[in-house]
């Protein structure tokens, strides 16, 4: 990674399957890079110190806080944001489950909830509602009271485990 006179560095990564190469300041958070440089405003920014979960994305398949990672650190990484899921007219299964269970109201927390749920569904048994709650405990929602989010994820656990 080479610096330039302006202090900016070139960073390249894959974002939602597309290869991107941009000039960034090292101090740019990955969340701001995704939103400002790439226009991917689905990744929301709430607390900017890791506690609300709104900015959660996947980096090389693992959920991470985009507000606690610098864009330069994502050099060579494979990034997936909420935009990699379905579209408004063609929701993916997890999004459809959130819609069906009314697991969102204002939607501010939803991108982070979805990306967190994807990683938790891969890594955790989520056998009980308590486990689902624990898995979502790093994501704050001010609207739903969480119950419907738990239901939406539980439906996906059943689907994953084939006991639907």
């Amino acid at each position: 990674m080479t610096g330039t006179a302006s202090g900016k560095v070139v960073v390249s990564m894959t974002v939602n399957g597309d290869r991107v190469e941009e000039l960034v300041e090292p101090r740019w958070l990955l969340a701001d890079f995704l939103r400002e440089n790439l226009g991917l405003t689905g990744t929301h920014v709430g607390c900017e110190h890791g506690v609300c979960g709104a900015c959660t994305i996947l980096m090389n398949g693992n959920s991470v806080r985009a507000c606690l990672t610098f864009a330069v650190q994502a050099q060579g990484a494979d990034i997936e944001t909420v935009e990699s899921l379905g579209t408004v007219n063609d929701l993916d299964d997890l999004q459809e489950s959130f819609r069906k269970h009314h697991a969102l109201q204002c939607g501010f927390c939803t991108p982070g909830m979805l990306m967190t749920a994807i990683d938790a569904l891969r890594k955790r048994p989520l056998a009980t509602d308590q486990e689902i709650r624990d898995a979502l405990s790093g994501n704050i929602c001010r609207c739903t009271g969480y119950q419907n989010i738990v239901k939406a994820v539980r439906t996906m656990v059943q689907k994953r485990d084939g006991d639907d």
């Binding site: 693992n62 991470v64 806080r65 606690l68 990672t69 990683d119």
Partner: peptide, 9 residues
């Protein structure tokens, strides 16, 4: 320790 996304990093 923290949550999955923090533990991943």
């Amino acid at each position: 320790i923290a949550h999955l996304a923090i533990r991943n990093r």
